[in-house]
Amino acid sequence: MDDSLDMLGLADADGGPVAPECRHFADDGRIPNSPLATLAFRSRGVNPVFDREDIAARFERLFGANGWRPSWRGGVYDYHHYHSIAHEAFGVLSGWGRLRLGGERGDDVELRTGDALVLPAGTGHCHLEASADFLLLAAYPEDQRELDLIGADPEAHDAAVARIARVSRPPRDPLGGDTARWWP
């Protein structure tokens, strides 16, 4: 059995994924956001013997096993943007970062090593500040192989809303939970 959830501090008492913090953001005319909840899974602490590569390997295995294709490592752009044709997941490999989610009037969220974040298609996100070693692993559902990048632009808004409505919902979140539990 894969013990990645436990080693990343993301297992609940029964060995399943921890319940996420669920946040909703309203459409502001520039960033559509989503009626689906943004999911923040908080780590209770990564196994202290793990280095960044060990953490990355665990997230890659966990995300891949649950139908979310690991794609790239890096940070988040420092301007408000969203993706209209794919949901996006992040696993924090090292450090800490503060992001603004939901557009300019959204909420600030601090992420730390071991945390995971799921942004439904249309959810605005922007880098505010981070430690020098902040690094994310991004992943996308298997059927969402392309990714667009749209800034906070009212001219692009309506067409993006139509695309967002067509994005499929994966059966599992990247940690293995039933997505319908969070996204009814």
Results as ranks from 00 to 15, higher is better:
Phe90Pro: 01
Thr38Val: 14
Leu93Thr: 05
Gln144Asn: 11
Asp51Tyr: 08
Asp173Val: 12
Phe25Lys: 02
Asp78Leu: 03
Ala159Trp: 05
His87Ala: 03
Gly91Asn: 08
Asp54Val: 06
Asp2Lys: 00
Ala57Val: 06
Asp143Arg: 11
Ala139Ile: 03
Ala132Glu: 13
Ala56Gln: 14
Trp183His: 07
His83Val: 08
Phe59Trp: 04
Ser43Gln: 01
Ser71Met: 12
Gly176Asn: 04
Glu142Pro: 09
Gly29Asn: 11
Asp115Gly: 10
Ser43Met: 01
Asp51Gly: 15
Asp115Val: 02
Ala130Met: 05
Ala89Gln: 07
Ala132Gly: 12
Ser168Tyr: 01
Trp96Gln: 12
Arg181Trp: 09
Ala165Val: 02
Gly29Gln: 13
Tyr79His: 15
Ile164Gln: 03
Gly122Asn: 06
Gln144His: 11
Gly16Glu: 13
Ala19Trp: 07
Leu137Glu: 01
Leu39Ser: 01
Arg61Pro: 01
Pro141Tyr: 10
Met1Asp: 10
Glu88Arg: 04
Arg69Ala: 14
Ser43Asn: 01
Pro171Gln: 08
Asp115Arg: 08
Ala65Gln: 13
Asp178Gln: 09
Leu147Gly: 12
Leu99Gln: 07
Leu93Trp: 05
Tyr140Gln: 13
Trp72Ile: 08
Asp143Phe: 06
Leu136Ser: 02
Gly67Asn: 09
Pro70Ala: 07
Arg172Tyr: 01
His81Arg: 08
Ile31Val: 15
Leu147Val: 10
Leu5Cys: 03
Cys126Leu: 11
His157Glu: 06
Asp12Phe: 00
Gly124Pro: 08
Gly124His: 01
